[in-house]
Design a protein around this nucleic acid. Structure first.
Lengths: 240, 240
DNA sequence: CGCCAGCATTGGTCGCGATCAATCCTCATC
DNA sequence: GATGAGGATTGATCGCGACCAATGCTGGCG
């Protein structure tokens, strides 16, 4: 159902852009796409770079073209919690609010395509399709957040680790052949990030990972590459 | 900006309905409102009644007219976590998904006004305003869920209790005179529900409440009525 | 009134995960 | 290869909150 686009009116970058057929761009008709594309800006951010600070004014939205973005919240005494992870081609931003209530930080190398806030908002007014897609993403994020609330509130440390690995395995699998029972992926997060995500400490994360390794449920190579020979066994540890 | 409505085409119940000017009905124009109203059904549920089961087919949406609804998730071994609390006039339901991923249960006496799923969905197609309002509610719920993730992952038991009381105080205050520094409200949840919400046990909830009482930060009457003489002191305990 | 059922509180003990501290890896740089 | 820095692992100890058990409170019913 791909619509034709006027190639010459579109910035060169967009022509080969992976986001054209996936992110918010995919719902726009030709005219709207051209308008949005004219104001778009592609940018890269190194791992660890802050993309958006808490209570900061938002003036641009963005689509994630590649990499992983972590959304965090911090208490006044420095305790931190990751409250969301976003992957390509997610939309990054919080419509209908001028100030952010959280921090966004690149968890890996990240490539973004950003747009001025008001251009997107104008387009949301005009295109119910766009708003619908953003609504769907918000609902999906809400489902995910609630899943994590169960994890944070009721799971043990080892179940938390297993759950996280299952989630990464699923994310890796979706871009891979489906229906397999093994997985192999790079951890997109450092131990510290994992701890911030699961509501644990670095030490506990480390201990639980070595426990899973000792029990032959995972292999760890170079501290980053994870191999799961039997996803069902990992799933059993996640306690669902 | 209230639009006139054809009084005679609207069910009698709606004429005096508190939801008319607040819930999803408030965004509908006259014609749409009449259509939706024709299929609406008002119903009451006792405290503890199940409104919606996990993996159950959804065929109706609803507006909460009064009372509190808790959204829960349960692990296979029975561990439970409340993942959302909804108050009037929230919309109850998960568009774009045929099966529920959570349980909804009346936490107090609840009065609902429900509509057939497809009537609402048709109306969402026709009315961008309606969809926008639902989108906004989803975003608000997402913000709330993320707030709670911080609470679940990083706060101590006493901070969790204080945070919950602050939230209830705010909810009570919004329908009350604003800007005051004291609060007085009925706990809409049992100790067991509070425990399920905060990721604690009943015993810990009880102990922390008595600690707050001993420290003169709250008064408890009949185990349900809470009086907070100084909201700032309570807030200081919430650890934000 | 006594009785009972369902919550809530209080006490005692234990274990998970935090905390503090000491290596150990990995990798970039020279 | 040597060096140093940041991250990861491992070890030892402590304390919060879970768990088990007993008691207390409240309200409905015969």
């Amino acid at each position: 159902m791909r619509r034709d686009i006027q190639k010459d009116a579109v910035p060169v970058l967009c022509a080969s852009c992976e986001g054209r057929n996936k992110g918010i761009c995919s719902t726009l008709d030709c005219e709207q796409f051209v308008e949005l594309a004219r104001t778009s800006r592609k940018s890269a951010a190194a791992s660890g770079a802050a993309l958006l600070g808490e209570a900061e004014r938002i003036d641009r939205y963005a689509t994630i073209l590649s990499g992983v973005v972590k959304l965090t919240k911090t208490l006044s005494d420095g305790r931190q919690q990751i409250v969301g992870l976003q992957f390509a081609p997610d939309f990054l931003g919080r419509p209908y609010r001028s100030e952010s209530t959280l921090n966004a930080e690149a968890a890996t190398e990240v490539v973004l395509c950003s747009f001025p806030k008001d251009a997107v908002e104008r387009m949301m007014q005009e295109s119910p399709e766009l708003e619908r897609q953003l609504y769907r993403q918000a609902l999906d994020e809400l489902d995910e957040a609630r899943e994590w609330m169960v994890m944070l509130g009721r799971k043990t440390a080892s179940e938390k680790i297993a759950s996280l690995l299952v989630m990464f395995a699923r994310h890796a699998a979706s871009s891979d052949t489906t229906g397999r029972n093994s997985a192999r992926f790079d951890l997109p997060l450092s131990r510290a990030d994992i701890a911030d995500f699961l509501g644990l400490t670095i030490e506990t994360v480390s201990r639980q990972l070595t426990r899973l390794r000792n029990d032959k449920i995972i292999c760890i190579e170079n501290n980053r590459l994870i191999i799961v020979p039997d996803l069902r066994r990992l799933n059993a540890r996640a306690g669902n």
